[in-house]
Design a protein around this nucleic acid. Structure first.
Lengths: 198, 198
DNA sequence: TTGCTAACTTACCTAAGGGTAAGTTAAGTT
DNA sequence: AACTTAACTTACCCTTAGGTAAGTTAGCAA
């Protein structure tokens, strides 16, 4: 047995997030989490009676991370390009290592099997992220940093899609594909300077 | 009981493909397939002893579809833009309805849990598709139809990523997002004419 | 018509998954 | 020191999943 901890809930969510990004929500079990934390399955049920509860907590944890990070990025008095860089590098950090994908992508794929409460949370998370990127693009356009044709909204969608897709692909085909894709995005945004890598 | 059929194998693969696009490979069971075909689970084991066998058959079926469709598109004496249109509309047809995503995306997400044989097949399938799109872009550039900055290869990756990501997103957020994204892709490719919808 | 083959079913096995109930034990409060 | 709370464990339950074995039946060919 392991000593009791008061932040067990957070530990569980943290491990669950990792498993979500590697295997998907329906493809990890309470036992997987329990083993990693050296506690029993029932202990996790104590904190999260149903898996749906854990799933919602997972979404809320992501939301908090988003709010914190996005807030920080927008508060910084930096160029739009730097903001976008921070997002891209932050995504990489959040999905640390080449074996993980974006947790939202992971949930999207399983959407048909997810409990409604999680579906709703996921929709909000996606919209929040999309809005954040759109704001950066608008800022970049106004400041003359970016110059691209077409609708800003659609471009924002495209940028987010590309980041997440690149993450997914690079897990299967290697890291270079991520760097390549990010560079191409910057080219298309009309930013001449090459991307800053953290 | 149902009358015996000689193309049961194809029927099974067909149903499995549908389930793959809705729930993912690890999230459908032999029982799901059996119920849809009104046969027993064991009958499917007769055709595909292990689920891995079914998975490989699934990949091969997708490969055949790719080879047939890509071949047709390249053989047609049409513009690069028309070829791309056919691919996009074809993807929509292959993933008929708003409740399905690209089967390759679905497999990518589950990559960590897939048997090695399937991982290998998936890699080949991705590369094949990427090469096909790259060829179209090269053709479009040479013919003056397209005009975009940056590397052709990276742009090809971006286009494929965007199509698949858009499908994934539109299942969660509605169809409009797919149309929007496709239009934006065409804008970025430097093609002025709006997309033809089938 | 006999007989082989392949499609299929019934009946099972084992493991793993989510979940529950009841008891144990650590730690803080008064 | 007594009491309470919450973290945790042991020991279950039920269902589903992948998989197997052995028998049944349809259909085709010699």
């Amino acid at each position: 047995m392991q000593t009791r901890s008061k932040n067990r809930k957070e530990q569980i969510v943290s491990v669950a997030l990792d498993l979500l990004q590697v295997h998907g929500f329906e493809n990890f079990s309470y036992l997987d989490i329990a083993n990693r934390l050296s506690i029993t399955k029932a202990s996790i049920h104590h904190h999260f009676p149903k898996k749906e509860n854990l799933g919602v907590a997972l979404c809320q944890s992501i939301k908090q991370w988003h709010e914190k990070e996005f807030g920080k990025i927008l508060a910084n008095r930096s160029t739009a390009k730097t903001k976008l860089d921070t997002y891209v590098n932050g995504m990489l950090r959040f999905s640390c290592g080449k074996n993980k994908i974006c947790p939202l992508s992971s949930l999207q794929v399983d959407i048909a099997s997810l409990p409604p409460a999680m579906q709703k949370e996921l929709r909000l998370l996606d919209e929040h992220e999309l809005g954040f990127i759109r704001d950066i693009l608008v800022m970049g356009l106004k400041g003359g940093e970016f110059s691209f044709a077409g609708d800003v909204n659609s471009q924002a969608v495209l940028v987010v899609l590309a980041c997440k897709g690149a993450l997914q692909y690079s897990r299967v085909h290697g890291d270079e594909i991520f760097e390549q894709t990010m560079n191409q995005i910057y080219v298309l945004l009309g930013s001449d300077i090459s991307r800053n890598v953290a």
